[in-house]
């Protein structure tokens, strides 16, 4: 559906404004550096999905209300649909594709499978990254902590009870 179109003003006084044409930029994703060329208005989510082919982050709303697009920016969960790709240079970006190592699932991923913390799986990458960020910062979370951590990740299938279970199980696993 049509969205309001921002006027594409080219201002002579503000030469630092980039675009509207594509601009070169580099993104650091999952420990690797990528050079790409996108319009400055491209969101981080679209850059990841359309330009880098990293489709693990999903687009559920494109306006910061669902959490399906969650990725980690310097270890913190963010809605990648609310960030512009050009803002994210110089930051460490982590997506769901970066979690498993040599074909071995991350303990949070493992716990999600074991506890069936998903149904359709569309919200799952976002949920997992929110949980991972929590556990890195708080290795012994309470149930309340987990709920707060994933409260910005909607799950229409209603996997919530199993998500909480999986997060707590993953915390235990990571500690031992």
């Amino acid at each position: 559906m049509a969205k309001a179109l921002e006027p594409r003003v080219q201002s002579a006084q503000l030469p630092s404004i980039r675009g509207p044409e594509r601009v070169p930029l580099t993104l650091n994703v999952n420990g690797r550096t990528f050079s790409l060329s996108v319009e400055p208005r491209r969101t981080l989510l679209d850059a990841l999905r359309n330009d880098l082919g990293l489709t693990g982050a999903k687009k559920g709303c494109d306006e910061g209300t669902c959490g399906a697009c969650t990725v980690l920016l310097d270890g913190k969960p963010v809605y990648s649909c609310l960030l512009l790709a050009v803002e994210c240079q110089e930051h460490e970006i982590e997506t769901i594709e970066g979690l498993a190592r040599d074909g071995k699932l991350h303990p949070v991923q493992e716990a999600f499978v074991e506890h069936d913390a998903l149904q359709c799986g569309f919200c799952t990458p976002g949920q997992i990254l929110s949980v991972k960020a929590l556990l890195e910062q708080n290795p012994e979370p309470t149930e309340e902590d987990v709920k707060r951590a994933v409260s910005g990740n909607l799950c229409r299938c209603g996997a919530y009870p199993h998500i909480v279970e999986a997060a707590l199980a993953a915390a235990k696993k990571l500690k031992s």
Binding site: R49, L54, T55, G56, A57, K58, K59, T95, I96, E97, L99, A100, L105, Q109, F112, V113, D116, L118, G121, F122, T124, P125, I128
Partner: peptide
């Protein structure tokens, strides 16, 4: 499960 938790699962959007 592994496809669904790693982002490997391809949805129509993907």
């Amino acid at each position: 499960g592994p496809e669904r938790v790693t982002g490997a699962a391809k949805f129509t959007h993907d």
